[in-house]
Structure formats: C-alpha cells, structure tokens
Simulated scan of single mutants.
Amino acid sequence: MSQQLPTLEEIRRAPKVLLHDHLDGGLRPGTIVDLARETGYDGLPTTDPDALRTWFREASDSGSLERYLETFDHTVGVMQTREALVRVAAECAEDLAADGVVYAEVRYAPEQHTERGLSLEEVIEAVLEGFRIGSEGRGIKVGTLLTAMRHQARSMEIAELAVRYRDVGVAGFDIAGAEAGYPPTRHLDAFEYLQRENAHFTIHAGEAFGLPSIWQAIQWCGADRLGHGVRIIDDIAVSGDGEPKLGRLAAYVRDKRIPLEMCPTSNLQTGAAPSIAEHPIGLLRRLSFRVTVNTDNRLMSGTTVSEEFAKLVEAFGYDWDDLQWFTVNAMKSAFLPFDDRLALINGVIKPGFARLKWQA
C-alpha cells in the first residue's frame, strides 16, 4: 500500500530542527509596528501590519537587491533597544516552537544593534534573555550564532564574544554579507582563533558567489558548515543520461559530510535557484550530501520550516522518511554536544516521526 505524502498540517506536528535563521529576518509585522512607535522609528512604508507583511514579501520578491536590503533596514531599525531585542527574540522562540521546531540556531550580527548606545555585550545578553523567556515550557531549545559582517573589520571582536558566551547560550559564530569582493579569507585571524579555542562556526558561502567562495570557506577558513552552499552544484556535471559526476570540491564536501544549510524559498528570491522543482537540493539529496532545510528569513520569504518541507514534498514527492532524513542531518550538524544531539535524535525526532508515519 502506497503511503500518502505528508500534508502541511501533518508536517507542522513533526519535530523539526532549524540551523539557518536570521533574527532580524523573522519579526512579526505587528511587532515591527509596535517597536517603531515605541522607539520613534519613522521609516516604515506603512503602519498597517497586514499591509506591512505584504510589503516585505513583495520587496523581497522584486528581484531588486536594493529593495531586498531595504527590508532589513526596517527590521534592524526597530531592534536598537534592550526591550526590543528581548521581545523579538522571545517571539522568535515562540513562533518556532509553534511550528514544531525542537532545536534552532538563530543568528544575528550584534554590531548592527548598537545605534542607540547598547554595547555588544548588552545586545548579546538581551537576545539570550529573550530566547530564555520565549523557550520556557515550549519544548524548544534555541542557541544563537553571533554573526560578523564581511565588509566590516570586527570579526575578531565578535569571535571573542562567541567564545566568551558559549557556555550560556551562544552556540557558535557566523560570517555574512556580500560574498563578491569580500572573501572569508579577509577574516582568517578570527577563524584561526575560533579553531584554537575549539569553537564552532559556519560561513555564508556559495549563495551569491560560486565555487571559490565555498573552497575558501572550507579549505582556508575551516568552516564546520556552509551557509547555503547551493553553488556546490556547479561542481557536479550531469550527463545526457542523467548520470552525475562529482568534481573534486563537491566530492570533498560530500565525503567529509560538510553540512549544507539550504534555504529553498530564499534561494529563489536571491536568484540562486530558478524554482523549487529545479532547486539543487533534489540532486544533492539523491547523492546523499549532508543537506539540511532552513528558512533564512521567515518574514521576507513568508515561510516556516514546515512550509519549506511542504514545498519540497510537492516538488520532489518526499515522504516521511525523507523529511526525517533532513531533520536528522540537521540535528547531527548542530553546534551542540554529542550527547545532547543524540538525545534529541533518539528521544524526540525519531519517535515523533514514527508516530506520524503510523498515523498516516
């Protein structure tokens, strides 16, 4: 008897893991309006929450990089006080838990939230407090990734803070921003420091820029994971009969089980993939790369982890076993101690999927 494919509502009940989600890309529109009023931020295109949600989505789908970046001007613009950061982080945890996420790593750049006088430490502590509040009693654990910006020169400072706060909720370090012209090797001192300190880090690579970005992130900087990494597909040649041949870099990424933090809807918006059905995730999953499924920016993409999974089910016919495979991949790749990862895989994820498969 053929098994019915998972529906969106069923997927929402599945225990999920999220590794690539930006705090400033997931605010509730109503919260943006409230915080703009409370902080005196007057740059919003509209103060109607529903219209604002639509504006964010349309600006992100416009194909204009300028309009897409403008969306973050508004979210970051209202996240400049301790109270705002606590609220945004708490609501983030609540929203993820409501979507069935049991473990998440949410990233943000502390240096972007100091315009009103907060120190980097005060920013970090406010976000940690918000996640503590929002996670309490909701069956979710949230770790943070401290992000440094590629075009700035504060990566060592942020890396040191990631190490300082790693025992109280900071799971690791990230670097983000425009790839072209700002290679990760510009921040080599920070990555070498993190390796000396036995700290975890991921690098945005292989999204807007190609294979050289991925190669540098892995071979020069030693990244544990690749943020997006979608352009690894450029190192896989598919013959006329559909037989794939991996290049040296793609083979290395697969052989070393380097996790790929894929964000399907976001990749469409940035032009990294033409459609969900043509997204490289289909081939990469078939070739058993360490693929994970993520949201990137839930507000801008109008998405959740469950909705990302549902789109992949529709495009590729994935069943419960496929969704569990993606989820276990993500949990294996999380910046958590081994025992904690194993406990979630064997105690929460596998039993949760088994129940859903049985009910189906």
Rank of each mutant, 00 (worst) to 15 (best):
L5V: 08
P6M: 14
I11Q: 14
L18K: 04
D21N: 10
H22F: 04
V33D: 01
V33E: 04
E38C: 08
G43K: 10
P49S: 03
D50V: 04
L52P: 00
R53I: 03
R57W: 05
S62G: 02
E70F: 02
T71Q: 00
T81L: 04
E83Q: 13
A84M: 03
A89Q: 02
A90F: 02
A90T: 05
V106D: 07
E111V: 06
E115K: 09
I124A: 09
R132T: 09
R138D: 01
G143F: 12
L145H: 13
M149Q: 10
M149K: 09
H151T: 08
H151R: 09
R154C: 08
S155R: 13
A171T: 04
F191C: 13
E192F: 03
R196F: 04
R196L: 06
E197T: 12
S213F: 13
I218R: 11
R231L: 05
A250C: 11
V253F: 08
E261N: 13
P264A: 07
T265Q: 09
P274V: 03
S275M: 03
S275P: 00
I276W: 02
L299C: 00
S306N: 07
E308W: 05
F309P: 01
A310K: 09
E314K: 14
F316W: 12
D321S: 13
T327W: 13
N329F: 11
F338C: 03
V348Q: 15
G352R: 07
L356F: 06
K357W: 06
Q359T: 05
